[in-house]
Design a protein around this nucleic acid. Sequence first.
DNA 1: ATATAGATCTCGTCA
DNA 2: TGACGAGGTCTATAT
Lengths: 244, 244
Amino acid sequence: MDLTEANELIINSLKKNYIITIFCSCSVEYTGRAKSYIARGDRLIIIKHDGTVLVHKPDGRSPVNWMPSKTFISPIIEDEMLTIKCSNSGEAMNAKIFEVYNITAAPLLDIEQLRINGTESDMSNMIYANPTLISEDFVPSSREEQTKYGFLDVFGHNGKGELVIVECKRYTASLDAVTQLRRYVERVKKTRGVKKVIGVIAAPNISNNAAKMLNDWGFTYKSINPPDRFPEKEKSQRKIKEFY
Amino acid sequence: MDLTEANELIINSLKKNYIITIFCSCSVEYTGRAKSYIARGDRLIIIKHDGTVLVHKPDGRSPVNWMPSKTFISPIIEDEMLTIKCSNSGEAMNAKIFEVYNITAAPLLDIEQLRINGTESDMSNMIYANPTLISEDFVPSSREEQTKYGFLDVFGHNGKGELVIVECKRYTASLDAVTQLRRYVERVKKTRGVKKVIGVIAAPNISNNAAKMLNDWGFTYKSINPPDRFPEKEKSQRKIKEFY
DNA sequence: ATATAGATCTCGTCA
DNA sequence: TGACGAGGTCTATAT
C-alpha cells in the first residue's frame, strides 16, 4: 500500500476514534523510562482510540514496544517513510514504517467488563469465611483492609489474646512472601506493643528457602488452594514437614 | 462477514502460520489460573503463529484475555457461533464470536531483537564503574551476581573490612526494596558470620515509609539517577534528611 | 499525585 | 524444571 495513502487513512481513522491495525515493516525507537531500538522487521501496530499504541512482533505475548493511553499520536511522511510519532509527558516512541501490507480501521464498542474470580482477594475471602482452614481457634476480624498496621490479607486472633496475621499467595510462596509477612508482623508488634504475633503463610506451596526462612522466624505455613483453580498436580505438592 | 467463511479463513491462515487479526463481537470465558468471563462486546482478537492469542478491548494497554504461546487453537462453528477454542496444559479460553467485522491474515517475518538500556542492570554497572557514587571508600567486588549469598546488585567493602551491599532501584524505593535489602544483608551476615554489613539503597527517590524502615534497620540511602533517563522533576525529589 | 501490592502478571536467568 | 528477581512492568485501590 502506498505510504501517503496509508498516512491519510490513519489520520482519518484517528479523527473518527477508530481502532487501527497496521501490518507493516518498521523500525521502532523509544526514549523515556529507558531507551530502546529495534531494527526493521515485520510487525503489527495497534492504535486504540484512548491513545494506546502497541507494537507486536509476529510471536510472543508481550508487545515489543508500546505507549500507554492518552498518548499523542501524529503520523507523518518524512524521508520517504511513514513515521508514527507518539509522545506524552516524559516518553516518546517513533515507529518508522518502510512498507505497509495492510491497514484495517473500525469503530469498536465494548461496554462490558471482565468478571474474574480465583484471585488472591477471593482466597482471603474464603479464609475469612472459613477460618478453620487456618486453624481450629483462628478468629478473623478483618480481611484485605488497610488497617493502621498496613494492608493485611486476613487479620484476627486465636482466642487466647494472640494476634494472627495471614498472608495469602495464589502460587508457591517465595522468600518475598515471607519477608512481606515478617514486615507486617513487626509493624503490628511495634504498633500494638506486643511481643508475640502469629504469622501464617497460606498458599498451595512454599519454596524450600522460603520454608527455611519461615521456620527461622517462627511463622507457620498452611497449605491452601485458592478457589476455582484446577487441582494442583501431586508432584508439585511440597511437604512442609521435611523442613522441620 | 459470514461466520462459516470466517472460520475457513482462520483455519487456512493457521495452517500457513499467518498472524491473524479479527475485528469482531464476542464473549470470552477463561478457566485456568483463575476463572473469568466477559459478555458480548466488540473486540480485536490477535492470533500469532507461535500459538499466542490476545483479546483486546477497544481501549487499554493490556489484553482483557489471552493465552500464552504454544496454545492449541481450534476454531469451530457451534450453535450458530464461531468459537475459537484455545487450550494448553492447565488452561482453556473460548472466544465465542457472534459477528465478524474484519479478518486480516498475513505472514510476518521479524528476526530483529529489541536493544534496550537504562535498566536496573545498567544502573548497577554504572555504580560498579563509579563507586564514589555510593561513598568515597566503597570498593565494589562484584555486580549483579548470583553469589552464594544470593543475588546482589552491587557487592563490595569499604576498605575497613566491612562488607557493603547496594540494592539499586530505578524509581522511588519502596518498602519492598528495603525488605529485599534487609534479606540480603541478613543472608550475608549469616553466611559470613559477621555482625556488621552495610546496606545501601541506591535510587532516585525513596518513599517516606521506606526511609523510616531504612533508618530503623541502620541502612543508608544514596540518591542516584539511573543512566539514560529524563531528569527527575525537582518537585518529586525527596529530602532524605527529613527522616533523620 | 503518591504509595502500596496484586497479576491468568511476563520474561529471562541460573541452579 | 523450579526458583528468583526485574520490568519502559500494568492495574487497581487507598491516602
